[in-house]
Computed example of a mutant assay.
Amino acid sequence: MTVTEIMADLQVDDLDEARRFYVHTLGMTEQPMGLDWVTRFIDPETGAALQVLTRDATAPEDPIATIKVDDVDASYARMRAAGCDIVHPLVTEPWGVRRFFVRAPGGVLNIAQRHG
């Protein structure tokens, strides 16, 4: 299992307000995800990114960060074997991500891999 990317997940009350700030004030570019509860903002020069969400639509808790891995099934097996608290089971979401949530020191993490 290799971690390929880490992205903060910031909970907001209003995505439009977040757009105004991150695009118009900070100069980032929105990378829409096709979902009405989450979007991503990226700095076009550096690739630095931030996801913002109003709430996670399919999980019982909101993550503080998304950690992308190259083998989410192996990550899931490793964390279960270690006795970690799995907050949201391993699932393939309709938007093309295979993921699970795990409780870690400091909050809940979304462990994910692009699927399909």
Results as ranks from 00 to 15, higher is better:
M1D: 05
T2L: 01
T2S: 05
T2R: 04
T4Q: 09
E5V: 00
Q11E: 15
D13N: 14
L15I: 14
E17L: 12
R20C: 06
Y22Q: 07
V23W: 00
H24M: 02
H24I: 01
L26Y: 07
L26Q: 07
T29S: 07
T29P: 05
Q31R: 15
P32K: 11
P32S: 15
W37H: 13
W37R: 09
R40H: 07
F41T: 03
D43W: 03
P44T: 06
E45N: 06
G47C: 06
G47D: 06
L50G: 01
L50Q: 02
Q51N: 12
Q51E: 08
Q51H: 03
V52S: 04
V52E: 03
T54R: 04
T54N: 05
T58R: 11
E61M: 11
A65E: 00
A65K: 02
K68W: 08
K68T: 08
D70F: 06
D71C: 01
D73R: 07
A74R: 13
S75P: 05
A77D: 15
A77S: 15
R78A: 15
M79G: 07
M79H: 12
A81F: 08
C84I: 06
C84W: 06
H88T: 08
H88V: 01
P89Y: 15
E93M: 10
R98G: 02
R99C: 03
R99Y: 08
F100G: 00
F101L: 07
V102A: 15
R103N: 04
A104R: 03
V108F: 00
L109I: 09
N110C: 09
I111C: 11
